[in-house]
Structure formats: structure tokens, C-alpha cells
Simulated assay, not measured.
Amino acid sequence: MKITEIEKKSKTRYTVYVDGEYFYILDAEILTEHHVRAGMEVTEAFLEQLKAAAQLRRARERAFYLLSYRDHSEKELYQKLRRNVSDEAAAHTVAKMLELGLLNDERYAEKLADYYLNQKQWSEKKSLYEMRQKGIPDEVARLALEACEVQPEDQIRRLIDTKYARYLGDPKGNQKVINALLRLGFSYGDVRAAVREYLEQIELEEEDEWQYE
């Protein structure tokens, strides 16, 4: 087999043809490192070596880009890399990101737990589900959620005060609020208790106002 043509594709990338047929797109550095030139005889093993080097480089570039945008779990990053590169290149790159300290499931889990529980006011149940979706291992996710020491009753009260209070007061509105809170993963018992407490407080305030009129 022979490399018959090396065609410039962009500033740093070249399309390589073997025996007149498309082989792969390689970076200039890979061409230089492996002394690749048009007209050289190559073996199947050498071509596989070039492809592996190209995939590893592509995986690392992609990983740096993704991690510059936001944190990822090990599993999440691996799955995204596998869309474009080999299993070996993806696994090697994840290991490299761990070595560089750019991946840390525990650190990422702590950030997500704080964001979901304290900022979005989601229940632990919904938060755990979302963390699983991002590839955080169950044990790591549960520990991070527990460390936040958030009480569901307090979360529900805050949600009612800041978001749902205007809907409470009639049966239809009450049910709408209950359904919304259930979708956030809170238990039916906690939701019913919080709504009942809020409605009772409204009644007491209205009675006080009536007495002073």
C-alpha cells in the first residue's frame, strides 16, 4: 500500500489518501511525528497507528472543549467522546482528564446537589434522578445530597411562598399546586401537610383581619 496524496483540508488538518482512496483526516503534527509523506509505502499496522493517534488527539481536544464549558462526570464524558472516537481513545482520554484533575465525580456531585436542592428547590428524589442522568454513581450522589442537610418540608414551604401561593385558596388551585410539587419528587404526605398548613395560616390571618375591622 502507498500514500498517494495528502490534501490540505484546513489550516492544521490534511486528508490522506491511500492507493487513491480516502483514508483519514490527520493533523499536521501527526503527519510530522510519523514522517508521513506522499509516495511512501505503508503497512496496515502503520495506518492503524496513524488512525489511533488521530482519534486520541481528537478525543483530547473534544474533552478539553467540553470541560471548559461545564463539569462532567467520568461516565458522561466517556459517553460523549464515544460518539466520535474509539472506545480505547475515549477511555484513555478520560483517564488523562482524571490525572490532570479536570474530572472529579465527588466534586461535581457536590455542585449538582447544592444546585438542585438549594437553588432549584428540587426534592432529593428528583435530584438523584438527574444526577444519575449525568453519570454520577448512586453512592456518590446520595452522599452529596445527604451532606446538604436539606429538609423537604422547608423546601416545600419556600416553593409555596415564592412560586405557588397565588394559586392556593380554591380546590382547583390547591390541586394544581399539589400536582406541581409532586412532579418535583416530593412525597404526597409532605405536600399535603405543607399545603394544609399554608391554608390554615391564611384562614387565621383572615380571621385576625376580620376581628380588627
Rank of each mutant, 00 (worst) to 15 (best):
M1E: 15
M1Q: 06
T4K: 01
T4W: 05
T4H: 01
I6L: 04
I6D: 00
E7K: 13
S10I: 12
K11C: 02
T12Y: 15
R13D: 10
R13M: 10
V16T: 09
V16P: 05
Y17N: 05
D19F: 10
G20S: 00
G20T: 04
F23K: 06
F23A: 05
Y24I: 13
L26P: 04
L26E: 01
L26M: 00
D27M: 01
D27Q: 13
A28T: 02
A28F: 02
A28E: 11
L31A: 00
T32G: 03
E33H: 09
E33G: 01
H35F: 03
V36D: 10
V36Y: 02
G39A: 05
G39F: 13
M40L: 11
E41F: 03
V42P: 02
E44M: 05
E44Q: 08
K51M: 05
A52C: 04
Q55S: 02
R57N: 11
A59N: 09
E61W: 13
E61H: 14
E61Q: 10
A63R: 10
F64H: 01
L66Q: 06
L66V: 09
L66F: 11
S68I: 02
S68G: 11
R70Y: 04
D71S: 05
H72Q: 08
E74W: 02
E76V: 00
E76N: 04
Q79K: 10
K80E: 14
L81R: 07
N84D: 02
V85R: 08
D87H: 12
A89C: 06
H92Y: 07
H92C: 00
A95T: 06
K96M: 06
L98P: 00
E99C: 04
E99A: 04
N104G: 06
N104D: 15
N104F: 14
N104Q: 04
E106C: 08
Y108C: 02
A109H: 01
L112D: 05
A113G: 08
Y115S: 11
K120R: 12
Q121D: 07
W122Y: 13
E124A: 10
E124M: 13
K125W: 10
K125G: 07
K126C: 11
S127F: 08
M131L: 09
Q133T: 11
K134E: 14
G135N: 01
I136Y: 01
D138P: 00
E139G: 12
E139M: 11
V140T: 13
L143I: 10
A144M: 05
A144L: 07
L145C: 12
A147T: 07
A147P: 03
E149T: 06
Q151W: 12
P152C: 14
I156L: 04
R158N: 09
R158H: 10
R158G: 12
I160V: 10
D161E: 15
T162M: 15
T162P: 08
K163I: 12
A165P: 11
A165L: 09
Y167K: 14
Y167F: 15
L168P: 07
G169W: 10
D170I: 14
A180R: 11
L182G: 04
L182E: 10
R183V: 12
F186Y: 15
D190S: 15
A194I: 14
V195Y: 04
V195R: 00
R196V: 11
I202F: 00
I202K: 13
I202S: 03
E205P: 01
E209A: 12
W210E: 13
